[in-house]
Amino acid sequence: MFREMTRRAFLARLAGGVALTAFAPYAMRMAFAQNATTPDLAPATVPAVQPDPENVLRKTIPSTGGNIPAIGLGSWITFNVGNDTALRDECAAVMAAFLDEGGIMIDSSPMYGSAQDVIGYGLARLGLPKSVFSADKVWISGGDNGPGQISDSLKKWGVAQFDLLQVHNLLSWQDHLPILQRMKADGQLRYVGITTSHGRRSDDLADIMRREPLDFIQITYNPQDRMAEQQLLPLAQDRGIAVIINRPFQGGRLTEYLAGKPVPDFAADIGAQSWAQLILKFIISHPAVTCAIPATTRVNHVRENVRAAHGPMPDAALRARIAKAVAEA
């Protein structure tokens, strides 16, 4: 994560910097004549352990009985890098590592700026891997605009059809759901879903879950946001709806807060080596959860995240201890 220097350090350097000003035009000319610097992120260290896709926990999609790995990949912010080739290549490297580890579900939306284009770029670079489970969204007012947006999204991804299309944040869901159901019936789509986050409009979502034949819902759930345990997760189980979990790290706030704090000893009992893995294990071990979709810009993080789906999962008692440990850290 980018760190701004402290104001004091800024002012101290400013004093010296002003003296440089006379030479600035020359220095700028010299600097601009070179290519843009390549990203200053040191190449992420790859864990020494070899990927073990066979060992990744897979969970069932109730509507079809199929199954998918319990960790997917989000793309909000992290993959919105515009046309910056160096950053696009970094995203492609994250996707490559994700697939290498045995992950398959990649989630995006027309709302995520250039993220869909960047996923398309990555997929093309990786030779359009067949294993990918493409999960995208429709996010536009009015049903008439839905099909156009979906075909734009398909072009951006560079795929012929999506595995899952979700109505993003319930926007115009009454219009979009019938269209998605029709696409599914026509064989142009495998699964239909709907999303929300931050616990917004939970009651509306519950109503829709009761009335509509959904394959997936996507909601927020993590040791700090447990509202879904009250209503949505049990309802999903009841109705046989698969559940994707967004914001597993509260958009990164949780991992940032926990960074440097000692990981509890009991983490070793379930093979978790970091807070991130502990949190992901907490999430995917909930019986109603099908998969979590953490987003990342880093190869080592994506490997760490998929590997959270290896090994033993916490039982109810251990899940309670994880939530307590996160709250008290």
């Binding site: 610097t37 909000w76 912010i77």
Partner: peptide
């Protein structure tokens, strides 16, 4: 919807 790193690299 973007990170500071992406924002500043736009100027680069």
């Amino acid at each position: 919807m973007f990170s500071p790193r992406v924002y500043y690299r736009l100027f680069e």
